[in-house]
Design a binder for these strands. Structure first.
Lengths: 229, 229
DNA sequence: ACAAAAGTGTTGTCTGTACACCCATGC
DNA sequence: GCATGGGTGTACAGACAACACTTTTGT
């Protein structure tokens, strides 16, 4: 069966835009670039690109993320297809938005520089091209929802982290504070964290234990679903 | 600013496929058609069509739904973009899937006949073309999730309905049974149902009160979020 | 010895769940 | 008067939220 049908229908440019989240200990950040092509060259933008025929849309998203950050095997999830007629003044382009969670210090600094990419706090977003601000807003909502039931927050933290870092992350994502005692009890009761014998000593004299996320224990729980927040 | 850029990139056919849910008192149903174009003509399929340049993707979905059912102003939500390279043997087509909830008796029977459309119980799906079964599976999961927090289930019921119909709907969506007393208490405690003075008398001698969904009261609650299940 | 962050328990309230009987009516 | 589905209450258990003091150790 050849690819001979469907001749008479309109064809579209298909863009992929990536909302890349990171966390540096204080606020939740998105990775933004200075756009290099017209229209709107020089303006703040999400990292994006056009899908190609020989790759799936998911693969296109992975390629674009790799291109900017040098990272692959990253947590990434399709967000939404944005398909308004006038969303891109450069043409009839639909955009499939993806959001990704990366460890902020693992990205390739040279590549980021080459794209003039910056980590920008979600509370201090500049003007963005097209519908990119809407995309980020939706991505943040989806992240909140997802994080409530899945332990994907760990994708944003270093391999080992303290409970305080974890709590700070959740507070940044949900833009609210949690009671330290309740938070600790809840998280530990899930049984998906493993305490190391090592302590983080830079931010206190007593020192705080490091923990690691135990993926195996989580896999066991996954089907029942977990309630984190 | 003309539409002169982006010349060198690949262009895609963009399909829209609609998962149309309905409820007839027993099982949850999806509206399927016999496909009329090659490839795979004559096979069971979701209702779909190609997006056109002068319409948004959302508008395309609404057009396709109207085309099949004669209905507009229907609850419809974008589900996911399916973008695998080989998903459609007829060409490099990406598909944006939408799911819709309609009142099964309000659809236009002549139009359904014209497309050889049938309401098929989700538990008895036939073989479907392409990735359509995957689409339905994902749509059902999304419906469950959405219905847990939003009163969209009412879109599937007649304007006035009994508590038993409502419970049967939820049991069909979640594929489990609920305790009648707990279900009634929970639903009524939300304060979004209004009891009519009228009773449904065909299925019992005592008769069951009709209720209507009170949209205004729901709007007041919407921001807090509601927990239905 | 003191400053600074780490770590830890108890109580009351709310929410979910399990469970069984009387009611109204048409026949 | 009886069969049929309609409608209702209670008690227990688990989850959540509010709340403050002691511990460790580097200086």
């Amino acid at each position: 069966m050849g690819r001979i049908e469907y001749k008479q229908y309109d064809r579209f440019l298909v863009a992929v835009d990536c909302i890349i989240f990171g966390f540096d200990g204080s606020g939740l950040k998105a990775l933004l670039i200075k756009r290099r092509i017209e229209p709107e060259a020089g303006k703040w933008s999400l990292m994006g690109g056009f899908a190609e025929h020989q790759e799936s849309i998911n693969d296109a998203a992975a390629r674009i993320l790799l291109n900017l950050t040098g990272l692959d095997k990253i947590y990434m999830e399709q967000l939404h297809c944005f398909g308004d007629v006038e969303r891109d003044p450069g043409g009839r382009v639909i955009s499939i938005a993806y959001f990704a969670l990366i460890k902020i210090d693992e990205s390739d600094a040279d590549k980021l520089d080459a794209h003039q990419a910056k980590w920008i706090d979600l509370k201090k977003l500049p003007t963005l091209i097209f519908d990119h601000k809407k995309m980020i807003k939706l991505a943040k909502e989806r992240l909140q929802q997802k994080v409530s039931n899945h332990p994907i927050g760990f994708e944003l933290l270093p391999h080992k982290f303290t409970l305080q870092q974890l709590q700070a992350l959740y507070e940044a994502i949900f833009e609210r504070s949690f009671d330290k005692r309740n938070f600790t009890r809840k998280i530990l009761s899930l049984g998906i964290l493993q305490r190391l014998d090592e302590k983080e000593k830079t931010s206190s004299k007593k020192g705080a234990f490091y923990y690691v996320f135990d993926k195996k224990k989580y896999k066991q729980l996954e089907n029942e679903g977990i309630q984190l927040i």
